[in-house]
Amino acid sequence: MGEKLLLIEDDIAIGRIVKDTLTKEGYVVTWATTGLEGLADFQADEFDLVLVDWMLPEMDGLTVCQNIRWQSELPIIMISARREEADKVEGLQGADDYLAKPFSLEELKARIASHLRRWHRYNKKETDEDRSFFEYGLNINWQKELVTLKDGEITLTQKEFALLKLLAKNPNQTFTKEELYQHIWQQAGLEDTHTVTVHIKALREKLKDSVKTPHFIQTVWGKGYRFIGEPL
């Protein structure tokens, strides 16, 4: 099976041409037409590279890039009709490359091949990186989704583990409740923050983490939450 690409493009004509072209090159292409659909596809599967349009319904390409970067360093190519230098600079804040429309399919194929070569070199990681160890006895096996606290296994729900992973993989970064809800529940907005609050509370209880003197999840009052666990 060929390398797996995620294409997020709402223009049907462009999306079909790009998908057909890359499929003929031997790639396995998943095509999404909205930002939220693309994010859901990304979280449901493993990909080698993402192609994302800037202007998308439900969630724009920059926000999609931000959500992907919270999880992975895989290559992202932004494709956009915006051609100004300032737009390219902004687009490259989250993406690795920027391709302005209209673009050559040959150039697109060349850029994809180049980024994939670098990604595969970068992605040769030691198996130890699948595990993280923190002070106060917290151990996380990311591949097996196994969490232990002082040698006792903790049973987390899928959402609780996803919250812990997002926070722990981005230490000391403050996430708002809206950002957590958007990323974990894959919904555009959050009028009621109760869902996030309830899951954070349950996660803290299982981690035996005090709100007043936390070892792992700290509340940043008026902003959100961040992971403060000290790695070993």
Score class of each variant (00 low, 15 high):
G2C: 02
G2V: 05
G2R: 07
L5T: 02
L7A: 01
I12P: 07
V18Q: 03
D20P: 02
D20H: 09
T21N: 12
W31L: 11
T33V: 10
T34K: 03
G38M: 02
E46V: 11
V50G: 06
L51W: 01
V52S: 13
W54T: 00
E58Q: 13
M59F: 05
L62Y: 08
T63D: 12
V64R: 03
V64C: 06
Q71N: 09
S72M: 04
E73G: 08
E73K: 12
I77M: 09
A81T: 10
R83K: 15
R83T: 15
E84K: 13
A86L: 15
D87P: 03
E90I: 12
E90H: 11
L92G: 03
G94A: 07
L105T: 09
L108K: 01
A110T: 10
L116Y: 01
K125S: 07
S132T: 10
E135N: 11
Y136P: 00
L138W: 04
L138V: 06
N139M: 14
Q143H: 14
K144A: 14
E145T: 13
D151V: 10
G152S: 15
T157G: 14
T157D: 08
E160P: 01
K165F: 05
L166G: 09
K169S: 13
K169F: 05
N170M: 01
N172F: 12
Q173F: 15
Q173P: 00
T174N: 06
F175M: 03
F175H: 05
K177V: 11
E178I: 14
H183G: 08
I184R: 00
G189N: 15
V198K: 15
K201I: 07
R204F: 06
L207S: 03
K208M: 12
S210F: 05
K212S: 14
I217P: 01
I217S: 01
Q218C: 07
T219M: 06
R226I: 03
P231G: 00
